[in-house]
Simulated scan of single mutants.
Amino acid sequence: MNAVLMTVQIVLGWMAFSDGLLADGVHTLADLGADGMVLIVLRLSAAAAHRRAGYAFNQSDRYETAGSLLIAILLIATGMQTLWTSLSHMNDAGNGASVHAAALVVAVFVIVAKEALFRYIMGVAKRTRSSVLVASAWHARSDAISACVAVLGILGSMAGVPMSDRVAAALIGLMIARMGWTLGWKTFKGSFARTAAETTGQ
């Protein structure tokens, strides 16, 4: 789903002159990288589960913590890059072509698809008690939220305010970076608390 959405967002965002949709497409591209990390982490965790019980659980926790931190770093980097690109093009907002209606249709579809993906992944995460899947689910929810911002920017541009699409792209960058920071901080605190508990138990 992420591969299809990314392709549609970037191609139509470029063709429809929508910086907001392009920024959202870059966010979905980051999702593809995060998906790859999640698959690797889950494979390593599954391998650890076949080893000695206590050691296996510790290793599995470490793999999932590392995966969550990598997703957080990826979100922060993607958000800052999107923000920088949007701000650097802000002065040209009034000189660009108006956003086409096709961008609006794609952005609305992305909201629905990403919210469905969030609910599906979160359901699996709760069933399997996987912290890295929780991180992946919230990553999908961040896409749904950023797509909402993209819709507002596109509507503003179609209404005759070209700057709104660039502002939406900048806001999406900030949202992505903030979500990455929040996820990284929560994962770091959880890992520190778990390490302290293990040390106390020993």
Rank of each mutant, 00 (worst) to 15 (best):
M1H: 13
N2F: 12
A3K: 12
A3H: 11
V4Y: 10
L5C: 12
L5D: 15
M6R: 11
V8K: 10
Q9A: 12
Q9C: 15
I10L: 15
I10Y: 09
V11F: 10
V11D: 09
L12C: 10
F17K: 14
F17H: 15
D19E: 15
L22Y: 12
H27G: 05
H27C: 08
D31I: 00
D31F: 01
L32F: 07
G33A: 06
D35W: 07
D35F: 12
V38C: 07
V38D: 04
L39A: 10
I40C: 06
L42S: 00
R43C: 08
R43E: 08
A49K: 05
H50N: 09
R51H: 08
G54A: 05
G54C: 04
Y55C: 06
Y55N: 09
N58I: 06
S60A: 03
S60I: 02
D61N: 00
E64L: 01
T65M: 01
A66D: 06
G67S: 05
I71Q: 03
I71Y: 00
L75R: 06
L75M: 09
I76W: 02
I76H: 03
G79H: 02
T82L: 11
T82S: 10
T85C: 04
L87R: 05
H89C: 04
A93I: 03
A93L: 00
S98E: 06
A101F: 09
A103W: 06
A103T: 01
L104D: 04
V106P: 02
A107N: 06
A107Y: 04
V108E: 09
V108T: 07
V110D: 07
I111K: 00
I111E: 00
I111D: 01
V112N: 04
E115W: 10
A116P: 07
L117Q: 14
I121P: 11
I121Q: 13
I121R: 09
G123P: 12
G123F: 12
R127K: 15
V134K: 13
A135V: 15
S136F: 12
A137L: 05
W138V: 13
R141M: 13
R141L: 15
I145F: 13
S146P: 07
S146Q: 11
L155C: 09
G156Q: 06
G156I: 03
M158K: 07
V161Y: 13
P162N: 04
S164Q: 03
V167A: 11
A168C: 02
A170L: 05
I172S: 05
G173D: 04
A177N: 03
G180C: 05
W181L: 14
T182S: 11
S191W: 14
S191R: 12
R194S: 13
T195H: 09
A197I: 09
E198Y: 11
E198K: 11
